[in-house]
């Protein structure tokens, strides 16, 4: 899952430095992701994994890193086992 999220982040987050891969714990805000682009990442992740981020997850912390996004996606899947895996 982290690899797929990482690919989406690299595509949509418009980070300061171009990279082929991301450490899962890289702070995306420190790396230059703007609020606007974090929403693009969120929507791409929703499409990719067939989930919908709930109000409670629409926080800065959720989108701090690939790892934190992955945790949120797992949480959403656990709360709704019917979503695509």
């Amino acid at each position: 899952m982290e690899d797929r999220i990482s690919a989406l982040v690299l595509r949509f987050a418009q980070l300061d430095a171009a990279a082929d891969a991301l450490d899962p714990n890289t702070d995306l805000w420190d790396a230059g992701m703007s609020s606007m682009h974090s929403v693009s990442v969120m929507m791409a992740v929703e499409e990719e994994f067939g989930v919908e981020f709930t109000e409670g997850l629409l926080t800065r912390a959720t989108f701090t890193s690939v790892a934190s996004i992955a945790r949120a996606v797992r949480k959403l899947r656990d709360s709704d086992p019917a979503v695509a895996r």
């Binding site: 949509f12 609020s35 606007m36 929403v39 693009s40 969120m42 929507m43 791409a44 929703e46 499409e47 629409l58």
Partner: peptide
């Protein structure tokens, strides 16, 4: 304000075809 911006950004992304709203 942050929550309004999120909705705005989602609509903005959807308009450009980079997401679905």
């Amino acid at each position: 304000s942050h929550r309004w911006y999120i909705v705005h950004a989602m609509a903005w992304a959807a308009t450009r075809g980079t997401g679905t709203l």
